[in-house]
Nucleic acid binder design. Structure first.
Length: 484
RNA sequence: CGGGGUGUAGCGCAGUCUGGCUAGCGCACCUGCUUUGGGAGCAGGGGGUCGGAGGUUCGAAUCCUCUCACCCCGACCA
C-alpha cells in the first residue's frame, strides 16, 4: 500500500495530484496555472504524438508550424470566436521596451492565423483539399486549473483543413473524430462515446462540433478530443476563396480538430489505482523493467549476467529503448519495486538467484499484481502476449466500468436522483432547446456531453421518446453527465 | 470577481491566542555500519531569520498597519 498517495475513496482530487507527484509526471511551475512536464510525463506525450502523428500522415495530412503570436484584430474577425475566447486570452502589449501598436494575442488556438495564411495559399479548386496539422502549445487563461486537465498553457495538436464542398468537410470532420476514437480505444485503452455537441457546448465559430468523451473513475466525464466542422465561418472571416471548375469564386469549407496533453490526465484517471500510475502497455514509454536481486557479490556475479541475457531476449521482441534495467543496487527491493509501480510500468521482471537457478524470470503485472514464471527461452513469445493481454484487460475493465455506470432515466426527478446517488452517464430524452439544457445545468451542474452518433454503441439510447423536463417529443436520448 | 483559508527548511507541519534561552518535528537529502524477493534499522550530519515592508517594544515568527502570493468553493473551460 502506497503511503504517499491518498486513496481514491478518501479524496479523488488529491489522489489524482498524488499519482502525478509519485509518478514524477509533472510539477507546478512558478507561474500560476502552468506546469512543468517532467521526463516521465513527457515520454508519455511523445508516445501519444508518435502514434497520432503517423495516423495523421496516413490519412493524408502534413505538419507545419504557425506562430505563437496572433494580431489581436484577427481574433475579432469571427463573431462567435471572439466572444468565446476573449475572456481567456493572454495578450502581449509591450515588446522591445515600448508599447506595441497592435496588441498580440498568445494563441488560444490557431484558426485565425491559419485562416489568414490559407487565404493566401488557396486560389484554385486544385489547391484543395489543404490538410495541415501542427503540434504546438497554446494558452488559455482559465480561472481554475488542474494539472494536465486544464492548465494555462498546454500542448496539443491542431489539424486545420480546407475543402471544396460541405460534404467533404463533414467527411473530414468525422474521419478525424474516428481517428481519435480508434487511438483512445486501441492505444490508451479508454472506451469513448462519440457524438455531437449541442449548440451551447460547441466550439466558438464552428457549425458543428463532434467529440469523444471518456468516463473517469469518479464517474465524471472528460472531453478527450474534438473535431469541428467550421463550415464557411472562418473562410468568410478570412476570405479563404477559390475558383471552382466552373470559374466561380467560392468560400472554402474548413475543419479543425485537436487533442491535448489532457489525454494524459484522462489516461491516469481511467486506469490508475491507489498505488499510483497504471499505463496500458501500448502507450507505456517503458514496457518492462528488469530488477536484478542479490544479497552479496557471489549472487551478484550470478544474477547480473543472467539479467543481461533477459534484457537481450526482451530487446528481440520489444523496442530495446522501452526495456529498462534497474541498477539501483544500493536500494532495497521493495523500494525499487515501488518506484516502478508508481511510474506505471506494465511489467516488472524480477531476476534473483532462485530465478537464475530455474532459468526463468518472475514477471509481475502492474494492474493485477499477478505473477508468472517465464523461462528465458519463452520470453520472446510470452512477454508480448502478456503485454497484449494486459492491454485487453485494461480496456475490458474500463468498458465494464462505463457500462455499469450508464443509466437510463425518463423523468427529471429520477434524473436528479441518479445524478447525485450514482453519477456516470445518464441517457435521457431532451426537447432540443437551449433553455432546457441551460436549466438542467443550472439546477444540477450536469451538461449534455453529446448527442450520440448513429454508429455510437448505445443501442439503448436509440428510439424516440419525450423530453424528461417538458414532455415534448425527442428523437432519441442524449448523454448527460457531470464533467471536468 | 464573490465566499472561505494559508504563508515558518525541498515537501508536510508545530510554535502565534498568552512576545523572552541558540526557532522545533516528520519526510526527503548527505556519511558510515548492518540489512535486502513488497516502501529497512541504528548512529552521525547539512539546510530555514519565520511571504514582503513599516510600526510598537529592552526584546517580535508571535502584537498593530499596509502589501504580495498561493490554495479551496462558485462563474469560465481542450
Amino acid at each position: 500500500m502506497a503511503t504517499n498517495i491518498t486513496p481514491r475513496a478518501e479524496n479523488y482530487s488529491q489522489w489524482y495530484l498524488d499519482v502525478i507527484a509519485a509518478g514524477q509526471l509533472a510539477d507546478h511551475a512558478p507561474v500560476k496555472g502552468c506546469m512543468v512536464i517532467r521526463p516521465t510525463g513527457y515520454a508519455l506525450w511523445e508516445e501519444i504524438q508518435a502514434v497520432l502523428d503517423r495516423r495523421f500522415k496516413e490519412t493524408g495530412h502534413v505538419n507545419a508550424y504557425f506562430p505563437l503570436l496572433i494580431p489581436q484584430s484577427f481574433i475579432t474577425k469571427e463573431a462567435e470566436h471572439v466572444e468565446g475566447f476573449a475572456p481567456e486570452l493572454a495578450v502581449v502589449t509591450r515588446a522591445g521596451g515600448k508599447e506595441l501598436e497592435e496588441p498580440l494575442v498568445i494563441r488560444p488556438t490557431s484558426e485565425t492565423v491559419i485562416g489568414h495564411m490559407y487565404s493566401q495559399w488557396i486560389s484554385s479548386w486544385r489547391d484543395l483539399p489543404l490538410l495541415i496539422n501542427q503540434w504546438a502549445n497554446v494558452m488559455r487563461w482559465e480561472m481554475r486549473t488542474r494539472m494536465f486537465l486544464r492548465t494555462s498553457e498546454f500542448l496539443w495538436q491542431e489539424g486545420h483543413t480546407a475543402h471544396e464542398t460541405p460534404q467533404e468537410a463533414e467527411e473530414e470532420t468525422l474521419k478525424m473524430l474516428d481517428v481519435y476514437r480508434e487511438f483512445l480505444e486501441g492505444h490508451l485503452a479508454m472506451p469513448v462515446l462519440a457524438g455531437r455537441k449541442t449548440e451551447r457546448e460547441k466550439f466558438p465559430g464552428a457549425d458543428r462540433t463532434y467529440c469523444v468523451e471518456a468516463l473517469m473513475q469518479d464517474k465524471k466525464a472528460l472531453q478527450a478530443g474534438t473535431s469541428h466542422n467550421l463550415g464557411q465561418n472562418f473562410s468568410k472571416a478570412f476570405d479563404i476563396t477559390f475558383l471552382d471548375r466552373a470559374n466561380e469564386r467560392l468560400h472554402a469549407h474548413t475543419t479543425s480538430w485537436g487533442v491535448s496533453t489532457r489525454l494524459i490526465g484522462g489516461l491516469l484517471m481511467t486506469h490508475s489505482d491507489d498505488d499510483g500510475l497504471v499505463l496500458p502497455p501500448r502507450i507505456a514509454p517503458v514496457k518492462a523493467v528488469i530488477i536484478p536481486l542479490f544479497k552479496n557479490d557471489e549472487e551478484k556475479a550470478l544474477v547480473l549476467p543472467f539479467a543481461e541475457q533477459v534484457k537481450t531476449a526482451l530487446g528481440g521482441c520489444l523496442d530495446p529503448l522501452k526495456v529498462r534495467m534497474d541498477t539501483r543496487y544500493d536500494q532495497r527491493p521493495a523500494e525499487r519495486y515501488f518506484h516502478w509501480i508508481q511510474q506505471g510500468v506494465p511489467l516488472r521482471l524480477e531476476v534473483g538467484p532462485r530465478d537464475v537457478a530455474g532459468g526463468q524470470v518472475c514477471a509481475v503485472r502492474r494492474d493485477t499484481r499477478a505473477k508468472a514464471m517465464i523461462g528465458l527461452d519463452d520470453l520472446g513469445r510470452e512477454i508480448p502476449a502478456l503485454l497484449e493481454q494486459m492491454q485487453a484487460d485494461l480496456y475490458a475493465k474500463a468498458l465494464a466500468f462505463r457500462q455499469a455506470n450508464t443509466h437510463l432515466v425518463d423523468t427529471y426527478e429520477e434524473f436528479k436522483q441518479v445524478l447525485t446517488e450514482k453519477g456516470g452517464y445518464i441517457l435521457a430524452h431532451w426537447n432540443g432547446s437551449e433553455e432546457v439544457e441551460a436549466r438542467i445545468k443550472e439546477e444540477t451542474k450536469a451538461t449534455i456531453r453529446l448527442v450520440p452518433l448513429e454508429n455510437t454503441p448505445l443501442p439503448q439510447a436509440a428510439g424516440p421518446g419525450r423530453c424528461m423536463v417538458t414532455g415534448e417529443p425527442s428523437p432519441g436520448r442524449v448523454v448527460f453527465a457531470l464533467a471536468y
